Simulated scan of single mutants.
Amino acid sequence: MPYHHILVAVDLTEECDPVIHRARELAVSNSAKLSLVHIVEPMAMAFGGDVPMDLSQLQQQQQFDQAKERLDRLIVKYPELSREYSHLTYGQPRQEIHHLAKEQGCDIIVVGSHGRHGLALLLGSTANDVLHGAPCDVLAVRLQTKS
């Protein structure tokens, strides 16, 4: 069964290039729409709630601004990722990716995965979170680990 709408979730680092390449291949081979999402995770979530609120709010805006700049550069680098189908949101990655996939009617979510050793570490924490409870198929693209 072909895919019609592919959601690619990226971290906006250079490491996300293979994830975008794989999502593009899928989109082309299925004549599917390609959407992009990046989730800015609250500092308090990332550090277990040990960040003072005033610092967290200041950092939140800085994080969001930096993510928007990186997202804009990524769209310039990959013109097929239009602004119309690019999403930048704030929250818990798993919940936001699942919500967007449902809301947009996506058939598959493409994420990057660091193939760690051992079954328990097969997927990175975000990729693993996205996999569980996803409203559609999930493709984890293995990322090369830097030695």
Results as ranks from 00 to 15, higher is better:
78 Y>Q: 13
79 P>Y: 11
74 L>P: 03
35 S>Y: 06
33 K>I: 01
80 E>H: 09
87 H>F: 14
97 I>P: 03
85 Y>A: 12
71 L>T: 08
85 Y>L: 13
133 G>T: 06
132 H>C: 04
58 L>P: 00
101 A>D: 07
77 K>M: 11
80 E>K: 04
87 H>D: 08
67 A>H: 07
100 L>G: 10
77 K>I: 07
69 E>A: 15
66 Q>R: 14
138 V>I: 02
105 G>E: 04
77 K>N: 12
121 L>Y: 08
83 R>Y: 06
84 E>F: 05
92 Q>Y: 13
122 L>C: 02
116 R>M: 11
115 G>P: 11
99 H>N: 10
102 K>L: 11
33 K>S: 15
86 S>W: 06
31 S>G: 15
53 M>V: 14
36 L>N: 11
127 A>Y: 07
137 D>V: 00
50 D>S: 11
102 K>T: 15
48 G>I: 01
77 K>A: 15
81 L>S: 04
123 L>R: 01
55 L>D: 05
87 H>R: 10
101 A>W: 02
53 M>T: 13
64 F>G: 05
65 D>P: 11
38 H>Y: 06
133 G>E: 06
78 Y>H: 15
125 S>A: 13
135 P>H: 01
122 L>W: 10
32 A>D: 06
66 Q>T: 12
34 L>G: 07
74 L>Y: 12
83 R>A: 09
30 N>T: 07
72 D>L: 12
79 P>S: 14
71 L>N: 09
133 G>N: 08
54 D>V: 08
